[in-house]
Design a protein around this nucleic acid. Structure first.
Lengths: 187, 187
DNA sequence: TTCGTTTTTTATCATTTGTAAAATTTTTAT
DNA sequence: ATAAAAATTTTACAAATGATAAAAAACGAA
């Protein structure tokens, strides 16, 4: 997934503003298993996923709970760090070898102050992430685990292929045993 | 809760920008039981709660599920309408007589295009709502119903007084009977 | 107040989900 | 190719939650 496509999907910037933004972005790559973001610290960097898949998890009384998957075109960001300059709660682990576009939060914030188009880009970015998060919340409250698994199968069939079921079960808020039962009844 | 305080809590605007924003805002009041927003339509208005308490709910197979409470200082908005110009999923019901500050989305969007401070105000608004939504999502995934009730008691003791337990139970994702059991074990 | 309605609690039983452990399948490394 | 490790499924039992009905408590209008 190339950078222009990722930027354009958020907000269509005039050429000049887009170039200013792109000047602050560089490419990086890390191997499967790498921890890209660590919880309980202020994270200064934003990543756009060019290639690969990652998961966000927290450690909850000696076990890991996965609460987000990100793949090509999505943004890896500690919202608490980005928005409030506070410690984030997410660890981000790479589930495949990955390539990212990297952007320093400090550079972006400078642009917010002097370029109205980039301020509106930042607004649209937050708004779109907000809608995604709200939909996840509502989905989680209103659907059973079984329905949520079926939706996942339908909306992201590749995820089931690329991510091990233990992580999927955790993401759905159930145990792996329970997910096995659900899969058995569907088949 | 006065308007200046609500605006300032989102983003500290220069006097001129703040006045431009305030020119678009008017006051309205509705009685307890009024439905302020209806699901499955595009909602053109944003409300800031001056006084009172409201709930957001959806109709899910013949019963209502509450998924949000808003009180003084909070914003009543259909995010889907605001962000994507699509039908929202929330109904908003007033649980007390309420007073609001009312702002038309169309006026706000005009200001986004010409005033960088208001564009950044809009960015901060979305960012802060995003953090709140993300925290609700994480809380819901990681805590048991019993823990969520205890947190609610601690963080919003007034809510338990002002809102009937059936709505609280729905908000927590459990039946009212189950909430009664939880309350019985805590006492 | 007092009656009627609504809300909350309690009790019982059915269903779902979790825990633990074993069995099976798949993946990885040599 | 084979052994070891990791992931997934299955089973049995325990714990938590849901559904329903009915009783008790709280609330509101006349």
């Amino acid at each position: 997934m190339n950078l222009d496509k990722i930027i354009d999907a958020i907000f269509e910037l005039p050429e000049e503003s887009k170039n200013a933004l792109k000047e602050s972005i560089t490419k990086v790559a890390y191997p499967k298993g790498h921890i890209l973001l660590k919880a309980d610290k202020i994270e200064p960097t934003i990543y756009f996923i060019k290639k690969g898949i990652v998961r966000a998890f927290i450690n909850q009384s000696d076990k890991e709970i996965t609460f987000w998957f990100g793949k090509e075109g999505e943004t890896v960001i500690s919202m608490k760090s980005y928005v409030d300059n506070q410690n984030g709660y997410e660890n981000i682990e790479l589930l495949e070898d990955c390539e990212f576009y990297e952007l320093k939060k400090s550079n972006l914030q400078k642009l917010f102050k002097k370029d109205i188009n980039i301020a509106n880009f930042g607004r649209r970015f937050a708004e779109k992430e907000l809608i995604k998060t709200e939909e996840r919340l509502i989905h989680r409250q209103f659907k059973t685990a079984s329905e949520r698994y079926s939706s996942l199968l339908k909306d992201s069939p590749d995820l089931i292929q690329r991510v091990q079921l233990g992580h999927i079960a955790s993401y759905l808020g159930i145990t792996q045993v329970s997910l096995s039962r659900i899969r058995a009844t569907i088949r």
